[in-house]
Nucleic acid binder design. Sequence first.
RNA 1: GCCAGGGUAGCUCAAUGGUAGAGCAGAUUCUUCAUAAGGAUAAGGUUUGUGGGUCCGAAUCCCACCCCUGGCACCA
Length: 472
Amino acid sequence: MSTKKYYITTTIPYVNAEPHIGFALEIVQADVLARYHRLLGEDVFHNFGADEHGVKIYRKAQELGNDPQEYCDEYAAKFDALKQTLNLDYDNFIRTTDSKHIAAAQEFWRKCLANGDIYKKNYKIKYCVGCELEKTDSELVDGKCEFHSSLELEIYEEENYFFRFSKYQKPLLEFYEKNPNFVVPEGKYNEIKEFVKRGLDDFSVSRLKKKMPWGVDIPDDPDQVMYVWFDALVNYISALGWPKDEKKFKEFWPGIQTAGKDNLRQQTAIWQAMLLSAGLPNTKQVFIHGFITVNGQKISKSAGTAIAPNEITDKYGTDALRYYLLAKVHPWEDSDFTWQKFNETYNADLANGLGNLIARVAKLAEKVAQFDPSTSSGQAAEQNKFLDEFRFDEAIKIIWERISGLDKQIEKDQPWKLEQDKLEDVLKNYVDAIRKIATGLQPFLPETAEKILKQFAGPKIKSEASLFPRIK
RNA sequence: GCCAGGGUAGCUCAAUGGUAGAGCAGAUUCUUCAUAAGGAUAAGGUUUGUGGGUCCGAAUCCCACCCCUGGCACCA
């Protein structure tokens, strides 16, 4: 029997801003799942990357006087650097400006076209001369531009390609009914079902090249490029080598996707309709996470609430941030970050809890000649159950209950008063317990888990520097 | 406006009909192997947004109202 395959991919961030801790949440959650399945012995493919086309990036590059590609190179590198900052183990960093991805997006387009789902249509756009921008209906206030209410909007017509989204209302609803766990959490599953039930309109999937050239060329049409969403969504399968590497694609697809709640519709409806159109299997499951607020405010660069992951990791280490994101942030509800809460958590759980326990047992263990080097391995079943439900917080809580349990046991035994042979007995139990704790910690805090397992590997165990020095 | 979710101890949350619980913070105390860390104990909610109702009994069900969050498509 071949090894079980597991594919997990995050959404790929749009590279028009620097990474912040809100995005770190998604990629750390995905990283835990990838590591967890690797530890189960599965063959894992973990994808991450950058979404690089579209008008916003084009304009931003223009403002900076840069070539769009140079701009994307610079920003994609910033996201790829999260691999070190957050200690991520992804296998692939896809960029939507890669030639392989572009070819895949074009092939995907051809499939939808061949299936009759892409057609040309005159499209009326509303244009505000004051802003020099197109306006969508949701941006309008009383039918006028919110910033220039004295100006009438101008109506332009342009011919775009449209995707026959409306055709997929029924197939999508059937798919949802057949796969009640397709979207986690349930609330988001209901939300997307309701959205699709209300009816779907076809939407435009191209832009005129003369207005906005920064996109994937449409096959056999020199005048238009793909609308950024259409090409970006294809990354989940182009990352697997589709359409060329058929073997890899068949092995790993369908996979698991993670996305923020702002991405619900794109991932669970639009992308799924596109897959149906192209005749490809739907995503297995989409996990929708919540948002992080900072001091109760939305994360926003202009409001100064954006915290870069390395602001935290440079000072307190990667695992301190990972712990906060996994244990103190609800997997799918919005959660608040404050430095005060971060410091409290760090001291209570990492310095006083885990770090101190390791230090006290290591010190006691120095008095014992040697330990059996055999380690207990394997993840605890109860922990796995929570991970299968994306309850990172509950899963990690189980480890902290063991930490607290061992602290109580030590207090009860009072090993510092014991004779040498009795001391050895109790310490062997402690060392086993620590190894078990560290093993459980592996998907969550990989660096710390590794350090502990090394320190407690035996036969000789020595005390070492604090894992998490207390914050004064 | 419509739809969904939520308002429970200082903070973060748990408990969906049967005497409101946990963690953190704060208090007292014991201990010393440890990063003044760890253990124990007590306290903490005028009884769970407000006002009604059903029931022997409601945080939990029903009605009304107040407040918060999200969604109601082409911004990614």
